[in-house]
Nucleic acid binder design. Structure first.
Length: 481
RNA sequence: CGGGGUGUAGCGCAGCCCGGUUAGCGCGCCUGCUUCGGGAGCAGGAGGUCCCCGGUUCAAAUCCGGGCACCCCGACCA
């Protein structure tokens, strides 16, 4: 036995398990700078695949990429009252440059609304300039009290879309369009089910009129806010005087939206599927989808096995599969199995002398199951195998979410649930801030979203879970990351 | 910011209470040979500011004081 350090069992300590999975899979490492993280190639590879998929969806819907500066004049943040109030406590500020005190301190962007809309004011003159649909891939800095790899770090990577529209309705449609894209990405690529809906006043983005979000339930039954889409109304347009002339010659402020997902998604991916062996990654986002492990005893066997393995590797790669042949000498096959399982490679192909003789390979899935496949069928079989794994992961995560969701909770059930197993609790809500605060004080749970119609209960709850007054809406409570 | 824990080789740790001369162990790493269908074996080898600063002492990984960093649990937080 030459076991590497084991992974803390998930059931024993979820946080330590999470860290262990990241270390075992070599996704990230701690940095010399407090609260910051280093994203290693296997983690960055997941992010790159996420970027590629999302970027394509943004472009399909008419968005273009641009890049705005990291530094924002401090005065810009202050132009929108709610915005500055929300972000000031967590900004990093540069006061010196080139050895001299700066005329005006520069904020390291915690988000880019202010600098972007200051430029939009210049670019937008006429209704013919609208809509303006831009996105940027960038890093941002928020000075966090307590950090966790991928989930909350001082610096992180994200995309932020910023759009300007002629009408309130168009901006609302954009906000909803993006929320739908996020949901589709999380379900179809991450195999992570989400609940979408509206944020309450206290939880919405600082400076927004409305914030919509995707909320996912992790394996410890806490909710992760995985993506947000904000309808900014004319708040920033007024602050930065972003105006356009209508066809009728009137001067109007534009309507803005902003929306983002971050490297936090990688954390969500990890916490949705992984197990005590290590990372479990859905094939569509796996930097390595297939690892080929050759097996031999003698030198003759080695050359024939490697010949076949190399051939399969080339064919799979040519067909678009992200494949890797593990030809390392001196490691037994079993050791390689454990290593690649820990790293979350969805499919392992074992090829030994017996397989070569039978013209087949053993195809083993990270999530369980192993079966021989004829060499001639390997390439054509992979899309189906990937699709099955992908949908099995989504089905398992969906089942887990449903098992940990309670509909029409009573006050006592809400308390018991949050003191006990956790999960999503659906119930009536009067809409009052006081109930929101009391629930949080008593249970640590917050309103994650006021769910969209497709997630709502039938029939709609009549009374507020907390105060018993008539419910004006339904809410989803959970303890959040 | 409060409570708890940890800093000794790349990783995981022992040694510290009770100071002592070449600071150990497992894994990993390098070389060679034998191995290889679920974590290989043998032989040889490389690798250390014992977190930092100061103090006590003939002598400090070990005792004392101060600091720093990281992790966990809270508090806080789009």
């Amino acid at each position: 036995m030459s076991q590497e350090r084991g992974i803390t069992p998930r059931a024993e300590n979820f946080s330590e398990w999470y860290n262990d999975v990241i270390m075992r899979a070599e996704l990230a490492d701690y940095s010399p700078v407090r609260g910051c993280m280093v994203i290693r190639p296997r983690g960055y590879g997941i992010w790159e695949l996420m970027q590629r998929a999302l970027d394509e969806m943004f472009k399909e819907t008419g968005h273009e990429n641009a890049y705005f500066p990291l530094f924002i004049p401090q005065s810009f943040l202050a132009k929108e009252a709610q915005h500055v109030e929300g972000f000031s406590p967590e900004t990093a500020v540069v006061t010196q440059g080139g050895g001299k005190e700066l005329e005006e301190p520069l904020v390291v962007r915690p988000t880019s609304e202010t600098i972007i809309y200051s430029l939009y004011a210049k670019w937008i003159q006429s209704y013919r300039d609208l809509p303006l649909l831009l996105n940027q891939w960038a890093n941002i800095v928020r000075w966090e009290m307590r950090t966790r790899l991928f989930l909350r770090t001082t610096e992180f990577l994200w995309q932020e879309g910023h759009t300007a529209h002629a009408t309130d309705r168009e901006a609302e449609e954009e906000t909803r369009l993006i929320l739908g894209i996020y949901r589709r990405f999380m379900e179809e690529w991450m195999a992570m089910p989400v609940i979408t809906g509206l944020k309450t006043e206290s939880e919405k983005f600082a400076g927004a009129v409305r914030t919509y979000a995707c909320e996912a339930l992790m394996q410890d039954n806490r909710a992760l806010q995985a993506g947000t889409s904000h309808h900014l109304g004319q708040n920033f347009a007024k602050a930065f005087e972003v105006q356009y002339q209508t066809a009728e010659g009137e001067l109007e402020h534009v309507w803005n939206t902003s929306w983002g997902v971050s490297t936090r998604l990688v954390g969500g991916l990890i916490m949705s599927h992984s197990d005590d062996t290590g990372l479990v990654c859905p094939p569509r986002l796996a930097p390595t989808q297939v690892v080929i492990v050759p097996i031999w005893k003698s030198d003759e066997q080695r050359s024939s096995v490697m010949g076949v393995a190399g051939q399969i590797e080339r064919e799979l790669r040519a067909s678009g599969v992200r494949v890797r042949l593990d030809a390392r000498d001196g490691l037994k096959p079993g050791a390689k199995y454990y290593e690649w399982e820990g790293k979350g490679v969805p499919v392992r192909m074992e090829i030994g002398p017996r397989d070569v003789a039978d013209q087949q390979a053993m195809v083993a899935r990270r999530s369980g199951g192993k079966a021989p496949v004829k060499l001639a069928d390997l390439v054509s079989a992979m899309p189906r195998v990937f699709a099955e794994i992908q949908s099995a992961l989504f089905a398992a995560a969906t089942e887990r979410q449903e098992e940990n969701t309670v509909r029409s909770v009573t006050k006592q059930q809400l308390i018991d649930l949050m003191e006990g197993p956790g999960g999503f609790a659906f119930g009536g809500y009067c809409g009052g801030e006081r109930c929101e605060i009391e629930v949080k004080d008593r249970t640590k749970a917050t309103v994650r979203v006021l769910p969209d119609p497709e997630f709502r209960s039938e029939p709609a709850p009549a009374a507020c879970v907390w105060c018993g007054e008539p419910a004006v809406t339904e809410a989803v409570w959970a303890k959040a990351y």
